[in-house]
Design a protein around this nucleic acid. Structure first.
Lengths: 246, 246
DNA sequence: ATCACTTATTGTAATAAATACAATATATGC
DNA sequence: GCATATATTGTATTTATTACAATAAGTGAT
C-alpha cells in the first residue's frame, strides 16, 4: 500500500537556527477556532512533524518535512531520540485539536525526533500551509503543544553533547564567519561564556578553520577577519573520537 | 485494540555483558530448517527483539523483552537509535526466515534500538523459546541476521560515548569490584589500554568509588581491595555535564 | 585631521591535568 | 622458604587550562 501512512508512527523536527546572538528554534502556530462563534479556543506552537509513510525511511520523512517548510536541501539533520510515551497526545488541548482535524489519529503515536541546524539568515520563512511560522529564542519559548517541550529539551541536550564532539556548529553560520561569531555560537548553545583569549587559543588548534584574505564590511568598528570551515581538513586531521572540541 | 501489535514497529535490544576480560553481547541463534528433508538451510544469530504492542511504550517493550530473556528486573537500559531503512529486512536469508514463520510481517519494519548492561556472572542464560542463546565477544561476532550488525555497531559507538560521560560501567560489574576490573572494563569497551598508575590516579578523583574493608579471596596472588559504586555520592558530587570521566 | 566609539586581536604567568616510566607489596601453592 | 602472580604506589616532564588587560583598526561625528 504505497502512499498510506503508518498511523502509529511520526517524525518531529527541532529546527535550530542562530542569528549571531541567540540560539533559536522554528515553531509553527496552532490555533483552535470554535466552529460556532469563530472565537479562538486556544493558540500555541508545535514543532514541525508529520506521519511516516509506509515504505518510507523516517530519515527520508524528516528530510521531506524540512524541505516542505524551508525549501532547503542538504540541511544538517540528526536523529536523536524516539518518543513513545502512551500519554504524549492525551492532554485535553491536544485531544481537542486532534478531534477538530477530523483525522483518524490513534491515541498512541510514537515519534522519531530529529534536530536540524540551519543558518537563520539564509532562509526566509513566512507561512506554511497558512499557518504562522516563527523563530523563538530557546530561552523564551511560547507554550508548546503535545510533548514538544520535552522533545525540544532533549534535542538541546543532544546538541550540546554533539557540539563538543564534532564541529557541527558551522552548520548554523553562513559560509564565511568571524571567530567572534563562533564564540557567540558556542556560548549560546552551551549556555556559558568564554574568555576571548582562551577561546581563540583553543580555536587556533583547529586546523580546519581556514582564514581568508577578507574582512567584514559595513561594520562601524574594526572589521574582523573572515574564516571558512573545511570539512576536508577536519576529516584528515581529526583525532580519535575520544576528545572534546571545546 | 489492546494487545494488537503495531506491525511496522519493533524494538531490538543489544545486551552487553562483561566477564572480567572482554565485552560480550548476548545473541540468539536462528536456524532455518528445510521442511522436506529437515536439513539446515542456514544458521546465524540475531539480537533479541519483538514487536511493539498498540498502546505500549517502546521503553516498556524493551523492558519486557529483557525480562523475558534474562528473568532480570531493573536492568540498565538506554535507547540509542531508531533504524528505519526500507532495506533492512530484505536480504534473501531474512525473507526466507520471515516467510518460514508464516507471520504477516511487513516488508518495512522500523525498529527502536536499546542497549542494556548486565553483569554476565549474575545471570544464567540457557535457552529461550527453545532457541540457543549465547554470549559472544564483540570482537568475535558470528554472522548476524537482518541489519543487526549495524545496530550492534551503533550501540557500541553510543556506549563508548556514554561511558565517558557517565559512570555507567559499574552496571557491568558485580556489586563489589576491584580497580583492576574497572580498568579492564574501560579498556574492553573503549578498545584501548591504560597505564595502571595513571588510570588509578584518575579513578582516585572519583569520590563515588567507595573502598571497603574487604579484599578478594580465593585468588593465588596479592588480593585486591574491593570497592563499591555509590550512585548517591555520584549525584551529589557530579560536575557539570561538560567533562569526560576518563 | 582629530576624536569618540566599538569591536578585534593578542601574550604571559600560574595552576591543573595528562603522560611516561619501574620498583615494591602481599597473597597463594609448592 | 620460595616461586609466581597480580596489586599498588611516586616522580619528573609535558601539555592544557585558567585568569587577566592593553593595543589595534575600522566607522562616524566634529
Amino acid at each position: 500500500m504505497p502512499g498510506a501512512i503508518i498511523p502509529n508512527l511520526s517524525v518531529d523536527c527541532v529546527i535550530f537556527g542562530f542569528d549571531s546572538k541567540e540560539l533559536n528554534v522554528l515553531l509553527v502556530e496552532r490555533t483552535l477556532i470554535n466552529e460556532q462563534d469563530h472565537s479562538v479556543v486556544f493558540s500555541d506552537f508545535t514543532l514541525t512533524g508529520n506521519h511516516v509513510q509506509a515504505g518510507e525511511d523516517p530519515d527520508a520523512a524528516a528530510v521531506r518535512i524540512l524541505n516542505d517548510l524551508t525549501g532547503l536541501h542538504d540541511i544538517y539533520l540528526e536523529q536523536f531520540h524516539t518518543f513513545g510515551s502512551t500519554q504524549r497526545l492525551l492532554k485535553k488541548k491536544d485531544q481537542m485539536w486532534i478531534h477538530s482535524l477530523g483525522l483518524n489519529i490513534p491515541d498512541h503515536v510514537i515519534t522519531v525526533g530529529y534536530y536540524s541546524l540551519i543558518d537563520c539568515t539564509s532562509v526566509e520563512i513566512t507561512n506554511h500551509m497558512s499557518r504562522n511560522v516563527r523563530w523563538f529564542p530557546v530561552n523564551e519559548l511560547p507554550e508548546l503543544a503535545f510533548d514538544h517541550l520535552n522533545i525540544l529539551q532533549k534535542a538541546l541536550e543532544h546538541l550540546r553533547i554533539k557540539l563538543k564532539q564534532e564541529p557541527i556548529g558551522f552548520e548554523l553560520l553562513s559560509e564565511k564567519f568571524t571567530l567572534t561569531q563562533v564564540q557567540r555560537l558556542y556560548e549560546a548553545i552551551l549556555g556559558t561564556t568564554f574568555d576571548p583569549r582562551n577561546f581563540r587559543k583553543k580555536l587556533s588548534q583547529m586546523k580546519y578553520l581556514i582564514p581568508l584574505d577578507e574582512k567584514q564590511t559595513a561594520v562601524r568598528h574594526k572589521p574582523a577577519k573572515l574564516y571558512i570551515f573545511s570539512r576536508d581538513v577536519y576529516e584528515r586531521t581529526r583525532k580519535t573520537h575520544h576528545g572534546f572540541l571545546i
